[in-house]
């Protein structure tokens, strides 16, 4: 069992919630870019979530979750002191930082929760990091202070102009590239469509662009093939070959189709969340 040490919402709208979990084995090895899989209880799904931070001394791992589906909503009903049945990791390959001097990290919405630890990890290693954090509106902005402290330049954009610069994050990136900013690499994390747009925008500039993929996953250890995607014409497994891939080689249309396979089941499950009572399930 893995105890929830603390929990806090990361914005006023409470669209993203941070959980610190007691998981010493995972904490010892976790590196930026890797993920964990949690399971609420015996009946729960295996849910993959990127590691936001880890503290090997305290033995804790931080995850940031957007409560949108049944499992994440159930997680959100749990409180410090409650336990998750399973919390396994670290899984996937860590972010490659070798040979990088200057990088732009671009996140969209809750993707910033994943982009931030990568940006900070790079910054901690002396890599110059510009970060563009895009949000729909002011009320869902997360981690502003942390991102500002953990990068060299932080640009916040909101689609509706209610905070930071008005417009999409990808528009800001385009502006930076047009203004002559040179990056060894651009790293994007966010909704699939956003990452696809970033990759399309950077292609003409010939800047290597890495996308952090989050496909449907089941075991997370390279056994089931549910997370497969086509990269450069080859079938890859996000859980063991990724989750980060060269965004210019990724077959984006295929990913968008695959990601929606259980949309109907997810919708129905989320609607039936009335079964949940304070994080504890009742079974007759």
């Amino acid at each position: 069992m893995f105890k929830i040490v603390s929990k806090r919402p990361l914005n006023e709208a409470k669209t993203v919630v941070e959980f610190v979990i007691d998981a010493p084995l995972v904490a010892r090895k976790a590196k930026p870019g890797q993920f964990i899989i949690f399971r609420i209880d015996e009946y729960g799904e295996r849910v993959p979530v990127t590691i936001a931070a880890s503290d090997p001394k305290k033995g804790t791992v931080t995850i940031m979750v957007q409560p949108v589906g049944k499992s994440t909503k159930m997680l959100n009903t749990m409180e410090p002191g409650d336990c998750l049945a399973d919390f396994v990791g670290p899984l996937g390959r860590p972010t490659n930082m070798e040979g990088l001097k200057k990088v732009c990290v671009i996140g969209g919405g809750v993707g910033n929760a994943i982009a931030y630890p990568v940006a900070k990890g790079m910054h901690d290693r002396g890599i110059q990091v510009d970060m563009i954090a895009g949000f729909r509106s002011k009320d869902i902005v997360i981690l502003e202070e942390e991102m500002r402290a953990g990068t060299d330049h932080l640009y916040i954009t909101t689609d509706d102009g209610s905070y930071g610069e008005a417009g999409f994050n990808v528009t800001k990136l385009q502006a930076l590239l047009d203004a002559g900013e040179q990056y060894d690499e651009i790293m994007c994390v966010g909704p699939t469509r956003m990452m696809q747009r970033v990759c399309e925008a950077t292609k003409p500039y010939g800047v290597k662009t890495i996308a952090s993929m989050n496909p449907i996953m089941l075991d997370g250890t390279g056994m089931c093939g549910a997370c497969r995607l086509t990269v450069g014409g080859e079938t890859k497994f996000a859980c063991v070959d990724g989750p980060e891939f060269d965004g210019h080689l990724v077959d984006w249309d295929g990913i968008i189709q695959r990601g929606a396979y259980y949309a109907q089941e997810e919708k129905e499950a989320a609607e039936h969340i009335c079964r949940i009572t304070g994080g504890v399930r009742e079974h007759g």
Partner: peptide, 11 residues
Amino acid sequence: ENLLGVFSANE
């Protein structure tokens, strides 16, 4: 092979 509804037996 990557159409929706193609699975590995393991999955």
